[in-house]
Structure formats: structure tokens, C-alpha cells
């Protein structure tokens, strides 16, 4: 008998995840090496991904939606105490991890948009709107937030390793293939991710990113 395949993550969500991984690494590298032209491009790409993810949280497949995984502290505590999961996707605790990482990344991009380097030479596309001192402050905030982001990423990887080693549950596979083998006898529940909605999201994200990268001038 062919095993039933249960979809977990839709394609746009997986692309978002892995592109973000690559872009965070590239942003770190280009920032450290003062390759600021590349660093700006990388930041715009992350901004694009974030806008798309926020949109996809409202319009995406079942497991991508905020309404599905943003739960109160009680649900998160209950999950910690060991109540099982009824469905695939983010558990109530993982949902908070996603929200924290998105919030930190948004703050990081915002700070970068206004940041000015020590020479007044390199800057984010919105730095024209603020003073040199405010731009320097944004730059300090930008690097401070980076440390917080690293902390969250370490936590994220630690949690995945915990599931893999202690719980014998591979979370990495589904983030690549998009699906798991369903429990015997269970029928697969579709994610209902729409191609047209994804394309709409790409357009919205591209338009907003372009506008911001041009310093809000058309």
C-alpha cells in the first residue's frame, strides 16, 4: 500500500525559509567585510521576503497562517507540559519562536534602512530622512539586534536538534520536501496554498521593497 503523504509546509513558505537562511548569512558576510552595496541588496531581499511572509501569514496555506499558529501563553504552556499535537505545522511554542524571529528581523531591517556608517558615506535608503546622529544610533541598534537574532537562531537550531535526537522526530526533512508520511489510516489534509495568491504576494512585496529601496521616492 502506498503511504499517504501529508503536506506540512507549502512551497512559498519553504522558499521563504531557505532563502532567508542564505540571505542572513550573506548579510552577515557582506556587513563584516564592508561590502555595503552587496549588504544593501541583501537587506532589500530580506525586506522582500518579510513583506511576503507577513502577507502569506494572512493569505497562505493552512500552516503558514498566523491565525493557525499564533496562540496564547496558556496553549504554549500546555504544550510544554506535554499535551500532544492535533495537527501538522507550528506547535503553540514554535509559533512564538516564529513570531519572535519575524519581529526581530523586521526591527533589524528597519534599523538598517536608517543606518549611517561612521564616515557618513554608506547608509540605508531612508537615512536621508534622519540626522547623522540618529543614523549612527540606528546603526548601533542594527548591530545590537543582530546579537538577539543570533540568540534566536541558536535557540531555533537547538530546538530542532532536541526534536531530532531526544524525540526522534525529523523537522528538517519536511522543511525541504514539504511533507511527512501520514499516520496510518489518516487521510491527508490539503494546505490549500493558492498560486494566484502567492503571485499577488510576490507583486506586493516587490512593489513595497522597490519603493523603500528608492528612499520612498518614485
Amino acid at each position: 500500500m502506498k503511504p499517504i503523504i501529508q503536506p506540512v509546509w507549502d512551497l512559498p513558505l519553504r522558499l521563504f525559509h531557505w532563502l532567508l537562511v542564505g540571505l542572513i548569512a550573506f548579510s552577515w558576510w557582506s556587513g563584516e567585510n564592508h561590502e555595503m552595496e552587496w549588504h544593501r541588496w541583501s537587506g532589500y531581499a530580506i525586506l522582500f521576503l518579510l513583506v511576503f511572509r507577513l502577507y502569506w501569514g494572512l493569505a497562505g496555506g493552512r500552516t503558514a497562517r498566523f491565525s493557525r499558529f499564533v496562540r496564547g501563553p496558556r496553549a504554549a504552556l500546555a504544550y510544554l507540559r506535554g499535551s500532544g499535537e492535533a495537527d501538522v505545522g507550528h506547535n503553540p511554542l514554535g509559533g512564538w519562536s516564529v513570531v519572535s524571529m519575524l519581529a526581530i528581523l523586521i526591527a533589524m531591517v528597519m534599523a538598517g534602512l536608517f543606518a549611517v556608517d561612521v564616515d557618513g558615506l554608506e547608509s540605508g535608503p531612508l537615512a536621508d530622512y534622519v540626522s547623522f546622529d540618529a543614523g549612527r544610533w540606528a546603526s548601533d541598534v542594527h548591530s545590537l539586534i543582530f546579537n538577539l537574532l543570533m540568540g534566536l537562531i541558536v535557540l531555533h537550531i537547538a530546538a530542532i536538534l532536541f526534536y531530532l535526537l531526544a524525540r526522534r522526530r525529523n523537522l528538517i526533512g519536511p522543511m525541504i520536501t514539504g511533507s511527512v508520511k501520514a499516520v496510518d489510516g489518516a487521510a491527508a489534509v490539503p494546505l490549500r496554498a493558492s498560486v494566484w495568491r502567492a503571485l499577488t504576494g510576490l507583486l506586493i512585496a516587490a512593489a513595497i521593497t522597490y519603493f523603500v529601496s528608492k528612499g520612498l521616492h518614485l
Binding site: 549611517v116 561612521v118 564616515d119 557618513g120 558615506l121 547608509s123 537615512a127 536621508d128 540626522s131 547623522f132 546622529d133 543614523g135 549612527r136
Partner: peptide, 14 residues
Amino acid sequence: SFKKMGAAMKVLKE
């Protein structure tokens, strides 16, 4: 003074 120079460079750049 360095901050003043940085601010002036920012003005020139803009």
C-alpha cells in the same frame, strides 16, 4: 569633531 565631519559628509553625499 569626528561626528561633525561625519554629518558634513552625509550632507555632501545627499
